[in-house]
């Protein structure tokens, strides 16, 4: 395992009020060497918080993060910037325009992590190394002197990727890396990312709300809803035989181009509040089309979903077949 996250929890105090927002609640997952894991869920489900915790930009309230066997979660985020592991967990951001310093040229942006964290051998041949990385990301050398605003969206994202892989990280966290790009550019970037993973043997944590894209790039998928993982398993299994009602609703909402009418599962009602949610009520209860009495009494935990190996879902329906909802 390259990354092993156990019972990760992050709560934010509510500003000017009582209680806490449970952004991430008891999340456990692992990523193997060279594995690509997808993290899907809607806005506010806590996936961005997971990203910030795993990339060690934020400190967890509780739980542990093991990276290459070391408990990196215990190191405060402020100090983590100067540890050796810093360069080994890197990230590609959602909005390339926002994630590049407007005052840095492409060259300086890519060179920044090498200057700060690179070994002396790497710093000695900084120029060559920057060109090498840029080339790997399909960025022509003549663009390296440009500022972000002088680059197209696709080129900006290539700079962002080059910066992320400059230190040869083992784990690359991709936070919606193509959602700000046009489809034609998205296709290029996705190919580039798949290619880089193969060439450099990195592990990916791929966060996205675009399920079609996640399926293309990942081996395994985690589905989050209101701070908890509700389903996880091999990508094909989760997408073909979703076990959790939320995953089913999510998949049915994806537009199917010209495929004729499909049955869409409509979610009604408002999501539950993330502020001090009851620990004994399923978070999806109230919106779940199949919720029953037990969901209000007991929080479901992840259990084998039967369909395939290591496919798990957190739903009481897996115990009680639909229709015979008895406690």
């Amino acid at each position: 395992m390259i990354l092993d996250v156990r019972a990760l929890t992050r709560r934010f105090p509510v500003r000017g009020g009582h209680g806490a927002v449970h952004a991430v609640d008891d999340v456990t997952f692992a990523i193997g060497h060279g594995e690509s894991v997808g993290l899907v869920g809607e806005s506010g489900c806590g996936k961005s918080t997971v990203v910030r915790l795993v990339t060690r930009l934020d400190d967890p309230t509780d739980g542990r993060i093991f990276f290459e066997g070391h408990d990196v979660g215990a190191i405060p985020a402020k100090r983590f910037a100067r540890t050796a592991a810093r360069g080994r967990i890197q990230m590609v951001f959602q909005d390339p325009a926002d994630s590049l310093n407007p005052r840095f040229t492409a060259f300086d942006t890519i060179a920044d992590p090498m200057r700060r964290l690179g070994e002396s051998a790497m710093r000695a041949r900084l120029r060559d190394r920057v060109h090498e990385v840029a080339d790997l990301c399909g960025l022509p050398a003549e663009l390296l002197g440009r500022y972000p605003h002088q680059l197209s969206g696709g080129q900006q994202q290539r700079v962002g990727i080059a910066r992320a892989i400059a230190l040869e990280p083992r784990l690359l966290v991709l936070d919606e890396p193509t959602s700000a790009l046009d489809v034609s550019v998205q296709a290029v970037i996705l190919h580039l990312l798949a290619d880089l993973r193969q060439r450099l043997g990195m592990s990916y944590l791929f966060v996205s709300h675009d399920l079609n894209v996640v399926r293309m790039l990942t081996d395994r998928v985690l589905v989050m809803y209101l701070g908890r993982i509700v389903e996880q398993g091999p990508a094909d299994v989760v997408f073909e035989q979703p076990a959790h009602p939320y995953t089913r609703a999510l998949l049915s909402a994806v537009p199917a181009d010209g495929g004729g009418p499909r049955s869409r599962i409509c979610l009604t009602g408002e999501p539950r509040s993330p502020i001090d949610p009851s620990p004994t009520v399923c978070r999806f209860h109230g919106r779940c089309p199949e919720g029953f009495e037990r969901c209000e009494r007991e929080m479901p935990v992840l259990r084998a979903a039967g369909a395939g190996r290591d496919h798990e879902a957190a739903c009481h329906l897996l115990d009680a077949p639909v229709g015979s909802a008895v406690s």
Partner: peptide, 15 residues
């Protein structure tokens, strides 16, 4: 909280 600030932290820049 701009992306480039997080990116700078990821690149090993102290506060």
């Amino acid at each position: 909280d701009a992306g480039f600030v997080h990116a700078a932290r990821l690149a090993g820049n102290g506060p």
